[in-house]
Design a binder for these strands. Structure first.
Lengths: 200, 200
DNA sequence: TACTTGACTACACGATCGTGTAGTAGTTTG
DNA sequence: CAAACTACTACACGATCGTGTAGTCAAGTA
């Protein structure tokens, strides 16, 4: 990050603090006073700049979405990312993802829209790479959810691995493991068909 | 469910209401008064039976974990489940999963312990089925997280599919899609190796 | 200089939170 | 029969919540 914290405007500091605290503690769990303290301003200034807590949340939604798209564009431009890479855990995206997941779980439309865009991106990716599942949409939705899963349960996964997956080393390890999931076929088509008949 | 709601003791009704509301709104988002109203009792009775909100949460943790293991045992006993089935979305497990995920995100040790047990179960499953990833532990952790992913983003996935995945029809559809993820290899081993070199 | 405007703070408001206290009704127990 | 215990309610407490109001201060503008 090339921006020093003290160089940011108060409004930006508030927004960054809100994304962080909302993401860490949930929307209900982070108070305006907490956010103001984190940003080093009075609680009244939060209201001055954003009007209400709900409006602050929407501003965070918008900002997080734009930043995520921006970061995604930059990383894919360098050509070192495929549609499957766990961009999710990239240091720049980390607090934004944390926030967006919380916001999704709280029913945010903006965050949900970003998920849907992700599904469509995966859909196009499978098409262009010649992957043809029977239910492309369902397949893409499952993959989009999977891309976020390791992130949502980062604490649990870290504990299982005995290694913090938010560090570069751990991030690489779980990334490799995730790749292996997509490399080793766990089931044969016959098994899947057999299961389908059994289910209801 | 063979138990009628009105037949449950007040304590059980409170616990069920707490699991439901904690799961839907998060721990901070559900007040003791909300839970009491949902259970049809006074807020004082919640305190009488559980002592404090934190103690109520721990009781819910314990109950949800036991019920999940119980349900899992019953379903696998019938022999119509493999280690990969999205038990996650089973009607019986649904509110429990909802709660456990929220509890995990709030740092619950009991819920995290359940996740770790899930990782170990997947580890044993891969071993007995002759699946040999380079990092078995990491592989199992990724799979454990994936099993929960579709569930966490059920609203988003439902919206992407235009079909509620908590209904039997939608549940089958996303289940099939998830199976396909494990059936179609997305990457070759060479691609994975190539990626590994690129990363850092 | 006088006026406006935007960033910012201090403080008080009603509501709601988790919790504490006191007490009632019904059953059990000696 | 009296004492004890359990399930349960009503109500009040201090703290904290989001929000509202009033005002300070600095910069720009006519």
């Amino acid at each position: 990050m090339d921006r020093a914290v003290e160089d940011l405007t108060a409004r930006a500091r508030i927004r960054d603090a809100a994304v962080r605290l909302f993401g860490e503690r949930g929307i209900e769990g982070a108070s305006i006073r907490d956010i103001a303290a984190e940003a080093g301003v009075s609680s009244g200034l939060v209201r001055h700049h954003f009007g209400s807590k709900e409006a602050l949340r929407e501003a965070c939604d918008q900002y997080a979405k734009e930043r995520m798209l921006q970061i995604g564009a930059e990383l894919t431009k360098d050509g070192n990312l495929t549609g499957l890479d766990p961009l999710t855990l990239h240091p720049l995206a980390f607090p934004l993802q944390l926030y967006l997941v919380r916001s999704m779980m709280d029913g945010s439309e903006t965050a949900t829209a970003l998920f849907l865009e992700g599904v469509e991106a995966v859909e196009e990716w499978t098409t262009s790479f010649g992957i043809n599942p029977k239910d492309r949409r369902g397949y893409a939705a499952a993959l989009a959810a999977i891309k976020l899963s390791v992130f949502v349960f980062r604490d649990q996964v870290s504990k299982a691995l005995g290694e913090d997956i938010t560090t570069p080393a751990g991030y690489n390890r779980i990334g490799q493991a995730l790749m292996e999931v997509f490399t080793i076929p766990l089931l044969t088509q016959e098994q899947v068909d057999h299961m389908r008949k059994q289910e209801k």
